[in-house]
Structures are given as C-alpha cells and as structure tokens.
Computed example of a mutant assay.
Amino acid sequence: MATDELDALVFRMALDSVHALPLSFGDKAAEIAARSRGILLFDVRIEGDAEVQRVAAIQYSSDQMGILALDKQGSGIRHCVINGGFSSFIAPLENWTRLPLSTQATIDITGHVSLFIGALRNAGYLLRG
C-alpha cells in the first residue's frame, strides 16, 4: 500500500474513532491529528458560508492533507483528503494560526478562508448539499 493511501486510511479511521466523542470541533481535529500521526495546521472559523462554520487541515508525511469541515448546524463533520495542490490556499491560513493571538485579532483572514473553501468545492470536495 502506498504511503498516501495509508495516510488517507489512517485519517478516516481516526475520524471514525473520534466522531462520537463529546468534544468540540477543535478538540476533535486535534485528537484526529494525534491519533493519525498528522500535524494540525489550522482550525478556523468561516464567516458568511451557508453550509460550513469551521474548517481544519491536518498534514501528513505523504504530502496529503485531511480536511474537516463542521456543518452550519454544528452536528456533522464533512471530510476529504487532498493533495499538495491546495498549498497556496492553505499557507495563509497556516501562517495566521502560528501568529500570537493578539496579532491574529488584527488580521482578517475571511477572504483566504473563502478562497480555500471555494477551491475545495470547485475541485469536487465539500460539495454543497
């Protein structure tokens, strides 16, 4: 089995094992990253989207990323596995997450988040219901 297939499988297994736990979305994303030996790149709020309120990305060694999106009602998590082709959309969100909280508060990333979600949808991921 190729490394990218193994990372995708482990991501899905971690997602299934954490899904029913009584944790917040951010805690679930962190737990999935820990259980699947990935690195949580970001967990950000999405403003103004009709279907999704939060999105998180987990990086794997195979250049794949597991993406988690919390639906607007807060009850369901959509997920997908993407390749490095989305790195230009992910980099600003990852960089913002690494900033101190006081600096994050002064930087608006709404546009970056919208571009990332739009790119995922245009590529056939996280499709609208």
Rank of each mutant, 00 (worst) to 15 (best):
Glu5Tyr: 09
Glu5Pro: 01
Glu5Ser: 06
Ala8Phe: 09
Leu9Ala: 04
Leu9Phe: 05
Val10Thr: 08
Phe11Trp: 10
Met13His: 12
Ala14His: 04
Leu15Val: 11
Ser17Pro: 00
Ser17His: 07
Ser17Ala: 10
Ser17Val: 02
Val18Leu: 04
Val18Glu: 08
Val18Ser: 07
Val18Asn: 01
Ala20Ile: 06
Ala20Gly: 08
Leu21Gln: 05
Leu21His: 02
Pro22Tyr: 05
Pro22Arg: 09
Pro22Gly: 05
Leu23Ser: 03
Leu23Pro: 00
Ser24Phe: 08
Ser24Pro: 03
Ser24His: 08
Gly26Leu: 11
Gly26Met: 07
Asp27Thr: 08
Asp27Arg: 12
Asp27Ala: 12
Ala29Trp: 12
Ala29Pro: 09
Ala30Ile: 05
Glu31Met: 06
Ala33Thr: 06
Ala33Phe: 07
Ala34Arg: 03
Ala34Cys: 00
Ala34Gln: 06
Ala34Tyr: 00
Arg35Cys: 04
Ser36Arg: 10
Arg37Tyr: 10
Gly38Ile: 11
Gly38Ser: 12
Ile39Val: 13
Ile39Gly: 07
Leu40Met: 12
Leu41Lys: 09
Phe42Ser: 02
Phe42Leu: 01
Asp43Pro: 02
Val44Ile: 02
Val44Lys: 01
Val44Ser: 01
Arg45Trp: 05
Ile46Tyr: 05
Ile46Gln: 06
Glu47Cys: 03
Glu47Leu: 09
Glu47Lys: 12
Gly48Pro: 09
Asp49Gly: 05
Ala50Leu: 11
Ala50Phe: 07
Glu51Met: 01
Glu51Pro: 01
Val52Glu: 03
Arg54Trp: 03
Arg54Asp: 00
Val55His: 00
Val55Arg: 00
Val55Asp: 00
Val55Cys: 00
Ala56Pro: 06
Ala56Lys: 03
Ala56Phe: 07
Ile58Glu: 06
Ile58Gln: 04
Ile58Val: 13
Gln59Phe: 11
Tyr60Asp: 07
Ser61Trp: 15
Ser61His: 15
Ser61Ala: 15
Ser62Cys: 12
Ser62Pro: 12
Asp63His: 15
Gln64Arg: 12
Met65His: 04
Gly66Leu: 09
Ile67Arg: 03
Leu68Ile: 09
Asp71Val: 03
Asp71Lys: 08
Lys72Ile: 14
Lys72Arg: 13
Lys72Asp: 08
Gln73Gly: 12
Gln73Cys: 10
Gly74Trp: 14
Gly74Gln: 12
Gly74Lys: 10
Gly74Leu: 13
Gly74Asp: 12
Ser75Tyr: 14
Ile77Ala: 11
His79Ala: 05
His79Val: 01
His79Phe: 08
Cys80Tyr: 04
Cys80Asp: 05
Ile82Trp: 06
Ile82His: 01
Ile82Lys: 02
Asn83Met: 05
Asn83Phe: 04
Gly84Trp: 11
Gly84Arg: 09
Gly84Leu: 02
Ser87Tyr: 07
Ser87Thr: 11
Ser87Pro: 01
Ser88Ala: 14
Ser88Gly: 11
Ile90Asn: 02
Ala91Arg: 14
Pro92Ser: 12
Asn95Ile: 09
Trp96Pro: 04
Thr97Asn: 11
Arg98Phe: 13
Arg98Lys: 15
Arg98His: 15
Leu99Tyr: 14
Pro100Cys: 14
Pro100Met: 13
Ser102Gly: 03
Ser102Cys: 05
Ser102Gln: 14
Thr103Phe: 15
Thr103Ile: 15
Thr106Gly: 13
Thr106Ser: 15
Ile107His: 14
Asp108Phe: 07
Asp108Gln: 12
Asp108Asn: 14
Ile109Gly: 03
Thr110Met: 08
His112Gly: 02
Ser114Pro: 00
